[in-house]
Every structure is written in C-alpha cells, then in structure tokens.
C-alpha cells in the first residue's frame, strides 16, 4: 500500500507509452499518474485517439508500458514487464471491465455470460448464480436471463456487460466509453445505473467518456491531452473557467 493513503485501491505512477510508427514513434502517454481511492470514481476525458483506452489497458495490465508502475490494492507491478500468471488470477477478482462494444459472448445466454466472469474467478456456484440474478434484477433485465445477446437491444447488452463486470465484486471497474454505442437517453440511464451500482457496491470506477455531463458525475475528473494528464479537475475551477468564457 502506498504510504500516506490506506484507501488507495489503484495507483499508477509515471506511466509512459509510445507506439512505433514507421521509423519513428508516437508518444501517447508521458509520465502519467493516476490515483483512485476506494469506492470513488474518476472520469478521464480526452479527444479521440488521445490514448484513453491505452491508459485503461495499462492500468488493467493488458499492455506493457515503456516505464512506470501500477499498483493494485498495494500490489506494485512494473508496468513495463509482461503480466505474470498471478496478475491474471488477481485481475479476475480485482478488476471488472466494461467496453463500448459490450463484447458479450454470442454462444452464451445472458445468465451464462455473466457467470462466465465468475467461472474465470472462483467458479460458478449457487452463490454466484444468485448474485448474477440479483445484478440482472438491479440492471432491469431479469426477464432476459435466457436470451442470447444478439436478441437484446444495445442498452440491454450494456446492462448485461455491467452486471458481468460486477459479478466478482471487483475493487475497481474500468469502463471504456460504456455509452458510446447508445443514444443519449439510454446512455443516460445506463450511466446512472453504473454510477449508482458502483456506489452501492463500493466499487471504484474509472470511466473513460467523451460526454462531459457523464464525466462530471464522477467524483473527480482528469483530462488527457497530448499524452499528458492534467491535474485533477476541480468542479469549482471548471465553473470559473466557464464563467470567464461567458464573460
């Protein structure tokens, strides 16, 4: 656990990442720091292709950074090293992931999709089945548990994806543009559900979004631009800036 903050669940220090492009390279992250406290939410905003998803992948240890450190619940990892098998085991319990394109497995029905995440962790049992049903109920899709994903609407699919991400009671949920494929109204409903459920479950949330109003709903906000994360975006400062612009 990092010194000075026992509530910190996820921390990244000095994350840098560049991609090769022809003979040269493009730096998408430079010395980025992220800190997420237990049961808090953080939104990351930035323009398309600025490296938001790469940052999430680095935090999830799905990709190697050039340098930096990532720590999950105090377990510190060199971000430039390949993920160990222990990290895979830890990842199943520590992280939940929600993507813009849902990524539900088409061969499994709704309930099986949710339980798949449990199978990857401790295994599916009566307890996980009950929790899956409870999550489906909370997401408002309890009547769809035997449906296959292709028969669901976009909003329903994302609700199922959120339920799947939460089935193992993760400490942190990484959501990459979860409303990107949904219309404004449905997106709003899904986002409300996501935030409320994370709040109830005391799950930390890192939310990547384009939508300022969704980003605003998070406890804290950061902005990624040209590979650099700006310092925490204080709501007061934003309001001042907005007023200045109006004037």
């Amino acid at each position: 656990m990092s010194e000075g903050n026992e509530n910190l669940v996820l921390e990244a220090k000095g994350l840098s990442k560049s991609f090769r492009l022809g003979d040269g390279s493009i730096r998408v992250l430079a010395d980025a720091d992220i800190r997420l406290e237990e049961a808090s939410s953080l939104s990351i905003q930035g323009s398309s292709g600025c490296g938001k998803t790469t940052l999430l992948n680095l935090l999830a240890r799905l990709e190697k950074a050039d340098e930096g450190k990532v720590s999950w619940d105090g377990y510190e990892m060199e971000a430039s090293s390949s993920p160990s098998s222990r990290e895979s085991v830890m990842r199943a319990d520590f992280l939940g992931v929600v993507y813009q394109a849902y990524y539900l497995i088409p061969e499994l029905n709704v309930l099986e999709n949710i339980l798949m995440a449990a199978r990857l962790s401790a295994g599916a049992n009566r307890e996980s089945m009950d929790r899956a049903r409870s999550l489906l109920s909370r997401m408002g899709v309890s009547d769809k548990e035997r449906q296959i994903p292709t028969k669901l609407s976009g909003g329903e699919r994302q609700r199922v994806a959120i339920a799947r991400a939460l089935i193992n009671n993760p400490r942190v949920l990484l959501a990459d543009e979860p409303t990107g494929n949904l219309d404004e109204r449905t997106g709003g409903q899904v986002m409300d559900l996501l935030l409320a459920t994370c709040n109830e479950e005391k799950t930390g949330l890192i939310l990547v979004t384009h939508n300022p109003s969704f980003a605003e709903a998070a406890d804290s906000r950061v902005f990624l631009k040209e590979g650099k994360l700006s310092s925490r975006w204080e709501p007061e400062a934003e309001e001042t800036k907005a007023n200045d612009e109006d004037n």
Partner: peptide
C-alpha cells in the same frame, strides 16, 4: 479475436 482479448481482460490466462 475480441472475445479472446475480453477473456484475458476478465482474468483468463493466455
């Protein structure tokens, strides 16, 4: 391919 990525992201080993 994307399902394979998802399974790893959810905690499955390669």
């Amino acid at each position: 391919i994307r399902e394979i990525g998802l399974l790893v992201a959810m905690g499955g080993s390669r």
